[in-house]
């Protein structure tokens, strides 16, 4: 009973023998690709500074990842480190010193991702953690917005700030060339910005957060490919718009309009690209709704009652921290059962 050997190697794999079309690197690189229009728009608005800052934060992220994975599993080329770098760059002001952007990328990957074991295991969005670190470490530099649009006097080729400040040294800031963000105007000066400017992005702000339309189109592409869970941005937009509408209806002079809330600051970028990071968002759809609504609520709370003019980053980080708990309480109802898997 000895079977005759087959002429060609036959592989024995476990079922299923078919494999779906998506793969992790493909998802990651698609996100990078869908960020390209946003990068292009940012370069259009902020000149070469935007590109430099993004490159610096990418370098920080990738160098750190490289340092960690030399001896571990090779996740360097899956594109996730690139996403962190690009997203971090997009949240920084255009005149940000490059050495600081590098530090942010390195911190985000090192302490936000590799310490947890690398790809897929982190709790906090690495880009936002890097951004939060920079915000805490260099609060002045990160809130120094260069003027844009008509207020920008220099040519497109001019750097928008002291990008080339020496490492560990303070950047030189020329006060006349800086301006406040629309949210800053709203919070501290009680002046509004035109909705069209907000939509098209010709306002002051971080490199990538200014053009809501481009971000929405990229996000729609990713949602169509099922590379992001549409419920997260949808619930963020709905809750922000809902809460803002109620407040606006109560006191229009004090609370800004929902349109303003949606299109100002980093909300679009955060809701579409950061909150939807698969690793740091809930796995269940119900959890995604809770997550998004929580972010929306926190964004509005921080913007209106908090000490900061912008709260998207903190809102997402705080909800990131809550994700394991949300996952726990939103276990799906298993077919044929009416009780939850585990109650608290």
């Amino acid at each position: 009973m000895t079977p005759t050997p087959h002429s060609q190697p036959i592989q024995v794999m476990a079922a299923p023998h078919f494999k779906g079309p998506d793969s992790t690197p493909q998802i990651m690189w698609s996100v990078v690709a869908s960020l390209c229009p946003v990068i292009a728009a940012s370069i259009y608005f902020f000149g070469p500074s935007a590109l430099l800052v993004i490159l610096a934060s990418c370098a920080g992220a990738i160098v750190t990842e490289w340092a960690f994975v030399r001896s571990g599993p090779r996740t360097l080329f899956d594109g996730s480190g690139m996403i962190t770098g690009v997203l971090l760059g997009l949240t920084l002001p255009p005149g940000f010193p490059l050495w600081m952007a590098f530090v942010g990328g390195a911190f985000g990957i090192g302490f936000g991702k590799m310490i947890f074991g690398g790809l897929g295991q982190n709790i906090f969005n690495p880009a936002l953690l890097g951004r939060a670190f920079l915000q805490a470490a260099f609060p002045v530099a990160i809130t120094t917005w260069s003027a844009s649009g008509e207020a920008w006097a220099g040519s497109w080729w001019h750097l928008r700030g002291d990008n080339f400040a020496l490492p560990l040294m303070s950047p030189h800031v020329v006060d006349t060339l800086t301006g406040a963000t629309p949210l800053g105007f709203m919070k501290f000066e009680h002046t509004a910005t035109s909705n069209l400017d907000l939509l098209l992005g010709s306002v002051n702000g971080s490199i990538g957060e200014t053009s809501g339309l481009v971000i929405l189109v990229s996000g729609a592409y990713l949602a169509w490919k099922n590379f992001l869970n549409w419920r997260i941005p949808a619930s963020i937009f709905l809750s922000v718009a809902g809460i803002a509408s109620v407040l606006h209806a109560i006191d229009a002079a004090r609370y800004p309009s929902p349109i303003f809330m949606l299109f100002s600051g980093g909300l679009m970028l955060g809701a579409v690209f950061m909150a939807t990071d698969m690793v740091t968002s809930p796995v269940t759809n119900r959890g995604c709704w809770i997550f998004g609504i929580g972010i929306g609520f926190l964004v509005v709370s921080i913007r209106i009652w908090g000490g900061l003019s912008e709260g998207v980053m903190y809102a997402i980080l705080l909800m990131n921290a809550l994700v394991p708990f949300i996952n726990r309480i939103t276990q799906p109802r298993v077919f044929g059962t009416s009780v939850k898997v585990r109650s608290l």
Partner: peptide, 22 residues
């Protein structure tokens, strides 16, 4: 045969499971 990567918690498996397992 594709490379295996760490789980990125995308939740696609929860979306696929007909028994609604996790």
């Amino acid at each position: 045969t594709k490379n295996t990567y760490p789980c990125i918690r995308c939740g696609h498996c929860l979306e696929a499971c007909p028994i609604f397992l996790n």
